[in-house]
């Protein structure tokens, strides 16, 4: 939902970042306002996932220059946990398995960390149990998954549902979903996409990182950005994703060659 007067939630300016001293992001500019859904597309290695990890504060990625403002404050100076507590959520492409840590306890601890920052009362064990069972409906998830260790033994689809469940619990302001559609069959994709749509509101924004149009058939973005060589090369409306579906990314190579980058 594009509203010209909406508040900018995320402002990325000329962002450069490296991993193991290898530059990956080379000047990303992006503004995301409240109520908007943005899709970031591009080939493997274009920098999409790096952008998501940098925004979430992964310690393996070093920001070398540029800035990211979140709700008017410097996001990059915050620790990952502080970003989460303030409402930045990263849905992982490959959710991590944590043996021995109960999914239910993990969800409760993380939800309470966010609620404390929101000035809300923390859930006790019983209240949280009711709350999480309510939120499970967003992703049509079996309550049995609460009793297991975090993501351990979950199928690819179950892991992604667990990510969206976390998103539903953490009530993010900025949700960055890194290839949430990967590894999902069509039914699971619809359930996950349905969850994302339910959680989108005029007060938050969503950044979808994806390779494929099929996710965008379920979640209609307000903007589509195409990344290549570590920056955004083109921005358009949802029709851009359809165009990419037809034309592929060859034009990206041509553009980069013309710029002397490729």
């Amino acid at each position: 939902m594009i509203r010209p007067d909406a508040e900018p939630l995320l402002e990325i300016n000329d962002l450069h970042a490296s991993v193991e001293d290898k530059p990956i992001l080379k000047g990303v500019n992006l503004e995301v306002k409240a109520g908007e859904i943005h899709a970031v597309m591009g080939r493997n290695g274009s920098g999409k996932s790096t952008l998501s990890k940098v925004l979430a504060g992964h310690p393996a990625y070093q920001v070398t220059s540029g800035s990211v403002r979140y709700l008017g404050r410097d996001l990059l100076e915050l620790e990952p946990e502080e970003r989460s507590r303030l409402g930045v959520f990263l849905g992982f492409q490959y959710p991590i398995e944590i043996p021995g840590v109960s999914n239910l306890e993990f969800l409760r601890v993380s939800t309470n960390a966010r609620r404390e920052k929101q000035g809300k009362e923390e859930f006790d064990t019983f209240d949280f149990d009711d709350h999480v069972r309510d939120r499970l409906q967003v992703v049509q998830m079996d309550p049995a998954f609460l009793e297991r260790s975090v993501n351990e033994g979950f199928s690819g689809g179950e892991k992604k549902r667990n990510e969206i469940l976390q998103m539903a619990l953490l009530d993010p302001v900025v949700a960055i979903l890194d290839e949430t559609d990967s590894g999902l069959d069509i039914d699971a994709l619809r359930i996950v996409a349905g969850g994302v749509n339910q959680l989108a509101s005029p007060d938050n924004c969503t950044l979808l990182i994806t390779h494929y149009q099929r996710l965008l058939d379920e979640i209609t973005p307000d903007y589509v950005h195409v990344m290549g060589a570590g920056r955004i090369l083109r921005t358009g409306g949802s029709e851009l994703a359809l165009e990419l579906e037809k034309t592929g990314y060859d034009w990206v190579d041509q553009q980069l060659a013309a710029e002397g980058v490729a």
Partner: peptide
């Protein structure tokens, strides 16, 4: 594991709490 620590931290759990949670999980098995 750094990836496990980061996953927990990305959910609002502090580094020290995340480490404690991972250790508890490790022992619990």
């Amino acid at each position: 594991q750094e990836d496990q620590l980061f996953y927990l931290r990305s959910r609002g759990i502090t580094h020290s709490s995340a480490a404690a949670l991972l250790l508890r999980g490790y022992c619990k098995e």
